[in-house]
């Protein structure tokens, strides 16, 4: 990016910037809820409170793939597609989640097949990312190389002293700055990126090859014995994209209805069930294995990027305490030298 892409905004002006943005588009920002933060649509003039915000409990994929999103609508024999092209912005999304979003793009709009429903939402999403200043308890983005961004954002905020350095990553980003020009001053550059200080890590060197050696390992059976198949991991994972198409007739008029996208989870039995009730992944071991291999091996082969961005949400949510970094370490310990 050119020299004129760097700006600075003082912390006291941040609310004003967000307020101005909410007038132009829907803004999703971290809002305090439940045990931590969730991305929610800000109401007009809603106060932003990022005190203690490291990352959200649930991932931002619901902005691009909302639960129960109508994809097709039918009224008797008239059928039409539904696209959401409302302009939206996601604010304070972390680098790991931006990497996850870029990965979802490769899945939903790559391989020579573009899903237009996803594309409509994606084209109309402004990405305002924010670098991390500290790591969460379960973060391991550093080892997954997802703790920094070189692109994929319209604006990138980095906290520094009494304000934020802001880098514009696109023309759209520059325009947003221009629209609130009074709040920003030009800056000579960005501060050096500091490491967030993750305590967990996955050693990814040659990991796919090592994982392949472990294909029939008892490690997966042992882990499966602990797994409750609650699907929490697949729910909170920012790169899990599997979904179902559900026909939902209107209860008030059965001749009308919608076909909706509902997220689905490979951890559940029903995921691989075919007509006649045969389930291909009947045993928990098979499903647990599919999850870990998809995250650390298959994703790399299909999209050229690991399907794990080190956000640590699955570790946080798992009731049985299953930890992907520990699983990877177990595999490496047992199979790396063989």
């Amino acid at each position: 990016m050119t020299q004129d892409s760097y700006y600075f905004i003082e912390k006291k002006d941040l609310q004003g910037f967000i307020d101005a943005l909410t007038l132009k588009m829907s803004v999703f920002a971290p809002v305090r809820k439940g045990r931590g933060f969730r991305f929610e649509k800000l109401k007009n003039k809603q106060k932003l409170d990022l005190n203690g915000y490291i990352n959200t409990e649930f991932p931002p994929k619901s902005i691009l793939m909302p639960e129960g999103e109508a994809l097709v609508r039918y009224k008797e024999s008239m059928i039409c597609e539904v696209f959401d092209d409302v302009k939206k912005a996601v604010f304070a999304i972390r680098p790991c989640d931006v990497h996850a979003m870029l990965l979802l793009d490769k899945v939903m709009m790559g391989h020579g097949d573009i899903e237009e429903h996803y594309e409509a939402r994606r084209k109309n999403l402004i990405v305002i990312a924010m670098n991390c200043t500290e790591a969460g308890e379960n973060c391991f983005c550093e080892s997954m190389e997802t703790d920094r961004l070189y692109g994929g954002f319209d604006l990138l905020f980095t906290e520094n002293g009494n304000g934020y350095h802001v880098e514009a990553g696109s023309e759209e980003g520059k325009k947003i700055i221009d629209d609130s020009a009074k709040l920003f001053r030009k800056s000579s550059g960005m501060p050096a990126k500091t490491k967030p200080g993750c305590t967990k890590k996955i050693d990814t060197a040659g990991l796919p090859e090592i994982m392949k050696k472990a294909a029939n390992s008892s490690i997966w059976e042992d882990t499966a014995k602990r797994c409750l198949s609650c699907a929490s991991c697949t729910f909170v994972c920012p790169t899990c994209y599997c979904f179902s198409l559900k026909h939902e007739p209107d209860v008030t008029d059965l001749k009308n209805g919608e076909v909706k996208r509902e997220m689905d989870y490979c951890m559940l039995l029903r995921f691989s069930k075919v007509a006649g009730d045969y389930v291909f992944r009947q045993h928990r071991t098979e499903r647990v294995k599919q999850f870990f291999y998809h995250k650390l091996v298959y994703g790399l082969e299909n999209e050229g990027k690991n399907h794990c961005v080190g956000c640590g949400r699955c570790i946080t949510e798992c009731m049985a305490g299953i930890d992907i970094t520990e699983e990877a370490a177990k595999v490496r310990k047992k199979y790396a030298k063989v």
Binding site: G34, S229, A231, Y265, R270
Partner: peptide, 16 residues
């Protein structure tokens, strides 16, 4: 449904 309440719970936006 042949899956646990946890799925409903997450979809309802509940913190575990």
């Amino acid at each position: 449904p042949d899956y646990p309440v946890c799925v409903d719970c997450k979809k309802a936006g509940v913190s575990c």
